[in-house]
Design a protein around this nucleic acid. Structure first.
Length: 570
RNA sequence: GGGCCAUUAGCGCAGGCAGGUAGCGCAGCAGGCUUUUAACCUGAAGGUCGUGGGUUCGAUUCCCACAUGGCCCGCCA
């Protein structure tokens, strides 16, 4: 028990990094902008961002990069891209494909989707520098890495063979050996058709491989399998690109990458990470980054796949929920485990966050030292801005859920007032501006709409009930059903009349008086159970038999609206 | 062919590497707040931890199989 030392999973990587005794650190991530980039990519970006925070806190100089691999060729397009368009640009680097959306005005396909992703970073509190790979390849330093690769082709091939061959079975093994015979790990944009790879009718992809390297001239001869053109190109032309398994270590070397998380596709045995490290060491003379493999983020029970149309972008999340919750989700979960992002579980994420915050600020006591250490470590990494001295107060989610559904009968100003008063009880400095409030309310509303859409898509009644158990969803009818009157007893109707008179006679009403009045009418005037009076009022106001605490609620309502509503029925 | 992850209460998930009375949130149940809840508080209940073996005094945890669900692995990225 005494020896039970807590470590957050991230701390293991931190320790490994620290062993290198560096003064400057580089963390990197990468993504090909082949379409809308889904929110899963934020897993590695947020992990990197957490590393940045940790090492900056230790006083080190940290660089954090996101490589947007826009030199990659389009090998397929998502469904939402026009078919004609697809045929035109297949095989060209994303950086050289125009934006697929008319009147968008952005530079390229790559920039369109890349910028969409980048634009969300501020919201998620991510601080990094963007490197567009196409631009990088225009630089001499990177072109020198091409030269080194071309001069070490045999060594590279040997490394690839060593790692990849054992992972292949019979036929594939044969194909791989065949392919390797003539392969040189670089490709060239065709001077004639501008493509860098060709997709054959059988689906195989044939890059415009370099077929000969002319060392003296620093030129390459290549052949384009698409149009058949054969040409010669300087390695400093900016038209050459290393193939992936070499491109990665070249970038690591150039930027002295200390750590780069890698999705499971790369982390597999014999995958790009394994070969990358060895190429890094044997060819480029750099020890290479520390790996941090991670599993995908899934959307409920499905994998997010651009090609299948299951796309949930960071931008979409931005419209629906709190960024700190997402950071928490990523950073609390062991990276080797799946994360199922469930938007209907936002209330649970919210509660978890609240608990973490309370423990961090000593408002709640942790059950164990381990729990305390864990939250203490996690909390600062989830913050978008600095960690405040006092616990920042938030409007409770339940209240927001309620507010966002009564907007048709209550003005924003009233809701804001109410929100402020509920926060003021805690701490003076945690007030939020009207604009902020509006934004949060809108976000809650969007989220509820998203949940409703999701429920509509479900066939399983049990699943729907489960969601409704967790989230109070309701709508207040614009008008009341006249038939409602038939369901009310004479006593109830008389009570409502009395209540209407009471409203008319009093200019200012506080919550308690209203609450008490309802009881007085029921018990003293009419001698009916108070419950009956409440039910009648809820039915008229909300169309259901129950509702929020009535006194404060009625106080918030516009008096004119209220009397109008009562008059409709009486 | 190789590998990864998941399987724990109605729902969503922790715990597992360091084996020894099974946890959290929500829902549900029973009460309370002279006074309704879409507020709150209190209490109780709810699980043979996917299956089968093994190691051990003892396994939900470690090891080995298996099942179910999901994913990754040539070139390309």
């Amino acid at each position: 028990m005494i020896n039970k030392v807590f470590t957050h999973w991230l701390e293991e990587t931190v320790e490994e990094i620290s062993k290198r005794k560096l003064t400057e650190f580089t963390f990197s991530t990468g993504k090909t902008p082949s379409g809308h980039v889904h929110i899963g990519i934020l897993r590695e970006i947020i992990i990197c961002d957490a590393l940045r925070i940790i090492f900056e806190k230790k006083g080190s100089k940290v660089s954090s990069y996101l490589f947007i691999d826009d030199f990659d060729a389009a090998k397929r397009f998502p469904d939402y891209i026009d078919t004609d368009y697809q045929e035109n640009y297949l095989g060209k680097p994303f950086a050289l494909i125009p934006c697929p959306f008319e009147d968008c005005g952005c530079e390229s396909y790559a920039r369109h989707f890349g910028n969409e992703l980048i634009s969300t970073f501020e919201y998620f509190g991510i601080k990094n520098e963007i490197i567009w790979t196409y631009d990088l390849y225009q630089k001499r330093e990177m072109q020198e890495k091409i030269r080194v690769a071309l001069e070490n082709t045999d060594k590279i091939k040997e490394i690839l063979k060593k790692y990849i061959l054992p992972t292949l079975d019979g036929e594939r093994k044969r194909l791989f050996i065949e392919m390797q015979k003539s392969s040189i790990p670089a490709m060239v944009i065709c001077d004639q058709c501008n493509k860098i790879q060709y997709k054959a009718t059988d689906g195989t992809i044939q890059p415009n491989r370099v077929i000969k390297y002319l060392k003296k001239e620093r030129e390459v001869i290549y052949k384009c399998p698409g149009c058949g053109y054969k040409g010669k190109k300087s390695i400093y032309s900016g038209k050459l690109k290393l193939n992936w398994r070499v491109d990665w270590p070249a970038k690591w070397t150039l930027f002295n990458t200390t750590c780069e998380p890698a999705g499971k596709d790369h982390s597999v045995k014999g995958g790009a990470y394994d070969t990358g490290i060895e190429i890094c060491q044997e060819v480029y003379g750099y020890e290479g980054p520390i790996t941090l493999p991670y599993e995908w983020v899934r959307l409920a029970n499905q994998d997010m796949k651009t090609s299948k149309g299951i796309v949930f972008t960071p931008k979409k999340y931005m419209d629906l929920a709190d960024p700190e919750l997402y950071r928490m989700l990523i950073l609390r979960t062991n990276p080797m485990k799946h994360i199922s992002l469930r938007m209907e579980e936002i209330p649970q994420y919210y509660d978890y966050y609240e608990k973490m915050e309370n423990l961090f600020y000593g408002i709640e006591k942790a059950e164990s030292k381990e729990e305390f250490d864990f939250f203490n470590y996690l909390y600062p990494l989830t913050k978008i801005n600095n960690v405040p001295i006092h616990k920042p107060c938030k409007i409770p989610l339940k209240l927001l859920i309620f507010f966002s559904q009564v907007q048709n009968i209550l003005s924003l100003n009233k809701l804001y007032e109410k929100a402020i008063s509920s926060m003021r009880t805690l701490n003076d400095e945690c007030l939020i501006s009207f604009e902020e409030f509006k934004a949060i309310l809108k976000r809650t509303e969007n989220w509820l709409n998203e949940i409703k859409l999701y429920m509509d898509s479900l066939n399983d009644q049990k699943a729907i009930r489960n969601i409704l158990n967790k989230i109070e969803i309701f709508t207040i009818p614009e008008t009341i059903d006249k038939k409602l009157k038939n369901n009310l007893s004479n006593d109830q109707i008389n009570g409502l009349k009395k209540f209407r008179d009471y409203l008319a006679d009093n200019d200012y009403l506080d919550a308690d008086s209203i609450q008490n009045k309802i009881f007085t009418i029921a018990k003293k005037d009419l001698e009916i159970p108070p419950k009956k009076m409440f039910e009648a009022l809820y039915l008229i106001l909300l169309g259901s038999k129950s509702g929020p605490r009535l006194g404060p609620f009625i106080q918030m309502l516009e008096k004119s609206w209220l009397t109008e509503r009562l008059n409709q029925l009486l």
